[in-house]
């Protein structure tokens, strides 16, 4: 009984890192990255087997339930994606065809990248799907960070377990690891550049590595980022997708 009590006290101490619980830290991360709306020009650099393929895009989003992306690189020009709540559609201009991305398609890499459609669909608010505890403190490229362990609380979470390295000063995820239920490492993410946008720290250059594939990574770059931009509701509709 005494041993259990001591173990519980240690766990409690670990989960209240210097007065902040893991949930509070995660809430601040969520708050920092939460936005009413966002508008940006983006670039996806898909590195595979030593070669790099670049996709460019314009994107608009409101909260984490509505997003609209239009690809602008010559090979994919006019290809669009619409996310509305839990639904995702793609429009292919050459065939004038709209396809709902669902079922097994959600596991595929988005436009050949290491980011799956499922990743793209997942809510940014980690607290909604995971419980958190502080494992330890570490330095990530010179920046002190808490290492949070996140465990899925809902079956719709994309990963069973995640580790997140949270910048202690800026409350931004500096690094992440995503695990399957079997314990296998599936993906790794790193924030390569964090910028202050409108008083908030936001990762504008992020790398995702799919550990199930060899010699591959995707770097996602946000340019011309505008937070809380005014976006008309009509942007997020089937009519706009096929316009």
């Amino acid at each position: 009984m005494k041993r259990i009590l001591i173990a519980s006290m240690i766990a409690l101490a670990a989960s209240t890192a210097f007065g902040q619980s893991a949930s509070e830290i995660l809430r601040k991360v969520d708050d920092n990255q939460a936005f009413q709306s966002i508008e940006y020009t983006g670039r996806m650099e898909i590195v595979l087997g030593g070669e790099t393929r670049v996709k460019t895009m314009k994107a608009w989003a409101v909260g984490d339930s509505k997003a609209f992306v239009e690809f602008t690189n010559p090979e994919d020009r006019g290809t669009r994606m619409l996310k509305l709540d839990k639904n995702l559609w793609m429009y292919f201009p050459k065939e004038q065809d709209t396809v709902k991305i669902s079922g097994h398609l959600l596991r595929e890499g988005m436009m050949g990248s290491d980011v799956s459609y499922e990743d793209a669909m997942e809510s940014d608010a980690l607290l909604e799907k995971y419980t958190a505890s502080v494992l330890r403190e570490e330095s990530v490229e010179g920046r002190p960070a808490w290492v949070l362990e996140l465990k899925a609380t809902v079956p719709t979470a994309s990963y069973d377990r995640r580790l997140v390295w949270v910048d202690k000063e800026r409350y931004v995820s500096l690094k992440g690891e995503m695990y399957a239920r079997s314990g296998r490492l599936l993906k790794e993410s790193r924030s390569l550049e964090v910028r202050n946008v409108g008083g908030r720290w936001y990762p504008v250059r992020t790398e995702m590595v799919n550990k199930l594939r060899k010699d591959t990574r995707t770097v996602f770059v946000l340019e011309d980022l505008r937070l809380d931009a005014r976006i008309p509701e009509s942007r997020f509709s089937m009519a706009e997708l096929t316009k």
Binding site: E95, Q96, T98, S234, S237, T242
Partner: peptide
């Protein structure tokens, strides 16, 4: 032509 979600398309098109 698209307005308020309504659209009219005229010409050779792929009606999927």
């Amino acid at each position: 032509w698209t307005a308020e979600g309504f659209s009219v398309t005229a010409g050779r098109q792929i009606v999927n």
